[in-house]
């Protein structure tokens, strides 16, 4: 069943990879769903993988991804490059990334405004950075290195954070705007992260959206959060990716689409992975909103 008129079902053996993701909804690729995807070939805009999961020599992960890639557009999303880290980028990791991108030729590559490695240890979390001039210069330098090494433009994702730094001299939107302007990278606008961070730091989400470089948004992420509270009882939202997308985030998504137009949108789920049809239903909801709300972009009309 196809909801969008522009989608005539999954692309089969498309010879030349498109230069960008289809402006539709996609979901994260999970090993739990490998077989079901190939058996049913659901009508979906794209799949996204976490790059590090496929940085192994061989075996089932590559087997399934290779086959799924034959039918779908692909977004590669890094979670371990530590772009916000104080240390120089891990060149060996960049080499692994380059090899992965070379092998699968994804339509999009993105990473996070965060750090995760220090002193040779990997902390497996997206850790926050101070928004100051020193960090700004370093992040821009790192993104420049990534784009040079990978020979492609990358998208940078706005973070979900739980603390702020007293040393910050810029606000988050100002920092991101500077990074995007200086490095030429695109923005992956994670609407859930934006909502989580705004709630956790007493900011207005719509005001934050207005102050981001929306013309550079090339992908959107949607996910679910968990609710805890801080020591004063104020809500502290956790970017758990373990529940369906919250209604507040869907509303914010509509608000964003009004401003950025039709944009590839990922439903992210990393915890308590449900059956494939559950995620497909969430993707269908995003597709329905994309179709109803978002005007065609000028470049899309031409194409």
């Amino acid at each position: 069943m196809s909801i969008l008129p522009l989608a005539a079902g999954p692309r089969r053996s498309d010879p030349a990879p498109a230069r960008s993701l289809p402006r539709r909804a996609g979901i994260g690729l999970k090993p739990e769903h490998f077989r079901a995807i190939l058996q049913t070939l659901p009508d979906l805009g794209f799949f996204e993988i976490h790059a590090e999961n496929y940085m192994v020599e061989g075996g089932p992960f590559h087997h399934w991804l290779t086959r799924i890639r034959e039918h779908y557009a692909l977004s590669v999303h890094g979670v371990g490059l530590s772009i916000g880290g104080a240390a120089p980028l891990d060149e060996a990791h960049l080499d692994r990334l380059a090899a992965l991108l070379d092998r699968y030729q994804p339509e999009s590559f993105s990473e996070h405004l965060a750090w995760s490695s220090h002193g040779g240890n990997f902390y497996n979390d997206l850790l926050p950075v101070a928004y100051d001039r020193v960090t700004l210069a370093r992040v821009c330098e790192h993104i420049d290195r990534v784009q040079t090494r990978l020979r492609r433009r990358m998208l940078l994702e706005n973070p979900a954070t739980y603390v702020e730094f007293a040393a910050s001299t810029m606000d988050e939107t100002g920092f991101i705007s500077e990074v995007v302007a200086r490095s030429g990278c695109g923005l992956l606008l994670d609407v859930n992260n934006l909502y989580v961070s705004c709630t956790n730091h007493g900011r207005d989400a719509r005001d934050s959206i207005r102050r981001l470089p929306l013309d550079t948004v090339a992908q959107i992420h949607l996910a679910g959060f968990a609710v805890e509270s801080d020591s004063l009882g104020a809500p502290l939202l956790i970017d758990s990716h373990g529940t369906p997308v919250a209604e507040e985030v869907w509303r914010l998504y509509c608000h964003v689409l009004d401003r950025v137009g039709r944009t590839p949108t990922l439903i992210e789920r990393d915890n308590d992975i449900p059956a494939l049809p559950v995620l497909l239903a969430e993707a269908a909801r995003a597709d329905e909103i994309l179709c109803r709300l978002a005007p065609m972009r000028r470049d899309e009309v031409r194409a």
């Binding site: 702020e164 040393a167 730091h201 007493g202 104020a234």
Partner: peptide, 14 residues
């Protein structure tokens, strides 16, 4: 050097 907008305990957020 960690801060919170409402003065809540940064250690609990950390």
């Amino acid at each position: 050097g960690l801060a919170s907008w409402n003065g809540s305990d940064p250690a609990q957020r950390f």
